[in-house]
Design a protein around this nucleic acid. Structure first.
Length: 947
RNA sequence: GCCGAAGUGGCGGAAUGGUAUACGCGGUGGUCUCAAAAACCAUUGGAGAUUUGCUCCGUGUGGGUUCAACUCCCACCUUCGGCACCA
């Protein structure tokens, strides 16, 4: 304590007894900066830890959502640092993007100025958080030293064939005046991710990255990284790998029509084809008599994709082209239709329709009266049949019952009762068919549908096995019962019976039927067998399709990294030489109220000379998607604005890369988190890095909501301003409260009373530590009291350590509160003078340090610790010291708690039984009962089973 | 429609087969004070009783497995997120 007094005198002013967050937070932030506490050090002898939180956009104001994302991330980085890891925790800014341009238009300020003003303001706000950021490795994506490398990546990708330019129907936001990547189009109404305006389709020449080249690797390597399962699932779904086959059909005129199918085993059930309205063969195939109708449909569907996708009518539409194709497996002649449910952007833009085994084709076929022929057996073996009144003698019901066949007698219209039969399995179906054959009255038929497709007539049985059979069966049915004449197909007739509807169509794998030589082929090999046979026949081959599209990176915006390409009338598209990078954005751009990119009209930017022929040429005026910048920022942090041949210092990169722990919002699951993985794989193939994945571990936090449990928004008026709370309760309270709300991954609601509770907790920690300094007491502490204190100290270290490991800051703090409550209870007893107390205070201070770095540093100093608490080793627990001496033995009778007995922790089973049975309340309940069994869970409970 | 997460006191939440409601907020009573605030102490799921260390009910709903279920299995309901004619 003498040290304390000396220190106090030296500082010239007595340190406050009260906790004054504003004072100590400023004091320590200054000291940390002056001493370079968080500056990165290169020390290859120590294990490194690269901790990273998603970089903020330069919106100009740090809101509580940023705190919620960053403070826990900082706490974990600090925890790792205290475990001896050489920890790198950088920060920077995502600084390109549309808001800067909007500000330019509205306030007549250059985007650069607007952005850098915001950066300056946000830096101050970020510093107030007291995070351990290494500001010397800050990177801002809109500075030339940064975007020079973003452009460099574009050129490298172009060289590698990963960047290409193509005219395509792309998503365009009319409000932002730019194209968007598919991932940036959200929701059912397909609106712009940024501004919410519904997007339209535009035919434009745009630059794309071949992310699909890496589709399989992006999929497979998910298994190698420690990421949340929900993110992996989203990426898997987004990539959407579909293995199948490409099969060539031929039009009657001889044009090959390629289709992609995941179900080549259903080829024999293809009863028609459908082309997308934009399919290039449509005009050629269309028969003259159908041309007017086809052209009208094509025009209408193009208009629909452009204007209102909102009215997503589920009802299928389409028209017949008048043309026919030949099915390569059975030479069947099948009609060719066009319909907008077939998308030009997936597969080949044409499909074979197998209505019996595809829900969409089924609906289409039913609507347009196209034949539906089942070719895959139902795996569940269920078949149905309706026996019409009068078609069989009454005794049939008896016979069915005798066979154990399930049926219900129900009225059919006004005809009387019919039998609604459900059959399970081949044996039942066979017996049922035999019964029908024996009992069917003249002039009737009966059908079995589902597992089999049989029509029992007086003179024989017909199967629905081909289009010819479909016509023949329908004709016979109409002859017997003219009421069914309105049906165009057998399936349409069957669909008229509601009882049948759930067995008419299925999309499962199963044994092949009605498929020539393949009939009977089992479902588990059918698909592969057919693909092999197609390959032998030369009519198809295995193919994999992906839902993932190539990444559209062109943006018709000014505030982004210019695409380093030049257009020359003589040489065409020419890349800018590396030595000319960066292609700078002009600082005198004129912003038009239309929002159109000023680069298009900026003579100085636009006009250049061709790098190949030196002739006049024009620059590409589109800039790159800002996700380009954020795909490699964690490499930029290694050595910001690097000067050299490559984007970052390879030497430093070898030590620090890859990122060990990444944290951020889940909203980037299929955008940033997929793009950055693609970048890393492409960089590896360029020889820039020698690993496959950029971030080894990922944690996604939830969203912070307003006090009313709603998403924070200005219009709701529930926005929480962190600066206000920082100035009153202090940054430590804001940090700690955000980490106390609940599990980080689930998010939670702000609470103005909740943060006061946390503030009280910090005050209590403060008073326990400060007031016990130099405390004295009368008498000595007992061994038992010291042991008890050490026990809770070590138990707390154990629990808190485990919680930090799992990002469970809420329960870590709960344990710390419990611990502190205990310390408050015993601080006026003699233990306060013991080593055990010193250990307890020291451990407490160390354990709060990651969450409340300022107050921990202050208390550490006041307790005589050497600067800095953040350089100390994390406390370790001793299992023996943490072990309980006394446990509460729970005694249950038939699973209900009847007694709780305090017993020594090392009690053996025999003693536990005796204690349990001897208890008064237990005996009361056992009266008159016979003990059947006794379950003993060591150290926990005894359950007596009695009756 | 498909995929995923969640549902526990008045509120945020804890407990991943073994004492349901840790910790915090809010409430109630008290100490201190002329008074109030702050702080501290006690108490706080519901119902009941013969009110010692008592009983019953209770983790979205309905079943099941188990000596024992918030926890595992089956079916369903609600909320939130993602995808949505992807052949």
């Amino acid at each position: 304590m003498a040290d304390q007094l000396v220190k106090t005198k030296q500082s010239g002013r007595a340190p406050s007894k009260a906790y004054q967050p504003q004072q100590i937070e400023q004091k320590w932030q200054k000291r940390w900066e002056e001493t370079g506490l968080y500056r990165r050090v290169e020390d290859p002898s120590r294990p490194k830890h690269y901790a990273l939180t998603m970089l903020p956009y330069t919106s100009g104001d740090l809101h509580i959502g940023h705190w919620y994302a960053m403070a826990p991330s900082d706490a974990k980085a600090r925890y790792m640092r205290m475990h001896g890891y050489n920890t790198f925790f950088p920060v920077g800014f995502d600084a390109f993007g549309l808001p800067a341009e909007n500000a330019a238009i509205q306030h007549n300020i250059h985007p650069h100025q607007w952005t850098m003003d915001n950066v300056e303001h946000m830096r101050g706000q970020l510093r107030a958080m007291g995070a351990m950021w290494d500001w010397e490795h800050e990177a801002i994506t809109c500075l030339p030293g940064y975007y020079k490398w973003t452009q460099w990546f574009f050129l490298k990708f172009y060289e590698e064939g990963l960047a290409y330019r193509q005219e395509a129907a792309v998503d365009f936001c009319p409000h932002c005046n730019t194209t968007l990547a598919r991932e940036q189009v959200w929701g059912e109404d397909r609106h712009c991710e940024r501004c919410g305006t519904p997007v339209i389709k535009r035919e434009l020449e745009q630059w794309f990255f071949r992310i699909t080249d890496y589709a399989d690797e992006l999929l497979e390597d998910l298994d190698t990284i420690d990421w949340p399962e929900r993110v992996k699932i989203m990426q898997r779904n987004w990539i959407g790998r579909s293995p199948g086959a490409r099969v060539t059909f031929t039009s009657e005129q001889g044009d090959p029509i390629e289709v992609f199918t995941t179900r080549p085993d259903t080829l024999w059930g293809a009863t028609f084809m459908v082309l997308a309205p934009e399919h290039p063969l449509v005009a050629k195939l269309t028969a003259d008599e159908c041309r007017a109708e086809v052209e009208a449909y094509v025009a209408q569907s193009i208009r629909q994709t452009e204007i209102d996708r909102l009215s997503l009518e589920k009802e299928k539409t389409g028209v017949f082209t008048g043309a026919y194709a030949v099915n390569p497996v059975n030479q069947e002649r099948i009609p060719i239709w066009i319909a907008d449910y077939v998308l030009m952007t997936y597969g080949t833009g044409a499909i074979m329709a197998v209505p019996a085994h595809d829900e969409r084709d089924f609906a289409f076929a039913l609507k347009f009266g196209l034949p539906i022929i089942p070719v895959i057996e139902r795996p569940d073996g269920v078949a149905k049949s309706v026996v019409y009144p009068g078609s069989v003698p009454e005794k049939l019901a008896e016979l069915l019952r005798a066979e154990g066949i399930e049926f219900q007698a129900k009225a059919v219209g006004e005809l009387g009762d019919g039998l609604f039969v459900t059959l399970r399995g081949d044996a039942q179906i066979d017996r049922y068919v035999a019964l029908l054959r024996d009992n069917l009255q003249p002039g009737y038929w009966s059908e079995i549908v589902g597992a089999r497709w049989l029509f029992v007539f007086e003179d024989g049985i017909e199967a629905l096995s081909s289009v010819e059979q479909d016509r023949a069966i329908l004709a016979r049915c109409i002859a017997l019962n003219p009421l069914v004449i309105a049906n165009r197909t057998v399936m349409e007739m069957l669909h008229g019976v509601p009882f049948y509807r759930d067995v008419l169509y299925h999309a499962e794998y199963g044994d092949m039927i009605h498929s020539d030589a393949f009939t009977g082929r089992p479902g588990d090999t059918a698909k592969d067998d057919v693909i092999r046979w197609l390959e032998e026949q030369g009519s198809g081959q295995a193919e994999v399709n992906y839902r993932l599209h190539d990444w559209l990176i062109s943006r018709q915006r000014m505030w982004g990294a210019p695409i380093p390409m030049v257009y020359c009338d003589r040489c065409g598209v020419v890349p800018v030489p590396y030595e000319d990078l960066p292609i700078l954005l002009p600082d005198d751009a004129e912003f038009l109220p239309t929002g159109e990119s000023p680069l298009r009209h900026h003579e100085g930017f636009l006009n250049t000379t061709c790098p190949a022929c030196d002739g006049p040429a024009t620059r590409e005026t589109d800039t790159m998607d800002t996700f380009m910048c954020s795909s490699w920022y964690h490499y930029a942090y290694i050595s910001p604005y690097h000067e050299g041949d490559v984007p970052f210092d390879p030497e430093a990169g070898r030590y620090w890369l890859p990122v060990d722990q990444y944290t951020g919002g889940i909203e980037h699951a299929t955008m940033h988190l997929l793009y950055t993985r693609f970048f890393t794989k492409a960089m590896r193939d360029l020889g820039l890095v020698d690993f496959d994945e950029p971030m080894l571990r990922l944690f996604c936090q939830g969203m912070i909501l307003g006090e009313d449990n709603e998403k924070m928004s200005k219009s709701r008026g529930n926005v929480v301003n962190p600066d206000e709370y920082v100035s009153t309760l202090g940054a430590d309270s804001v940090r700690a409260f955000l980490m106390f709300i609940g599990p980080w991954e689930l998010g939670g609601s702000w609470s103005s009373t909740g943060i006061e509770g946390i503030h009280r907790f910090i005050n209590r920690v403060w008073s326990v530590v400060v007031e016990s300094q130099g405390a004295s007491s009368e008498g000595d502490a007992s061994d038992a009291d010291m042991a008890a204190l050490r026990r809770i100290t070590h138990q707390t270290i154990r629990d808190v350590t485990r919680d930090y490991e799992a990002f469970k800051f809420n329960t870590a703090q709960a344990s710390l509160m419990k611990f502190n409550n205990y310390l408050m209870k015993v601080q006026n007893t003699p233990v306060v003078t013991t080593e055990a107390w010193t250990e307890a205070i020291r451990s407490l201070t160390l354990m709060i340090a990651p969450i409340m770095p300022h107050v921990a540093e202050e208390l550490w100093e006041r307790a005589g610790g050497a600067y800095s608490v953040h350089d100390q080793r994390w406390p370790e627990w001793d299992e023996e010291l943490a072990a309980d001496e006394v446990i509460t033995l729970v005694v249950q009778i038939n699973g209900k708690v009847r007694a709780r007995i305090d017993v020594p922790a090392d009690i053996d089973e025999q003693e536990a039984r005796e204690h349990a049975l001897a208890h008064e309340n237990v005996q009361r309940f056992l009266e008159g009962l016979q003990i059947r069994k006794l379950v003993y869970v060591p150290g926990r409970l005894v359950n007596i089973v009695a009756n």
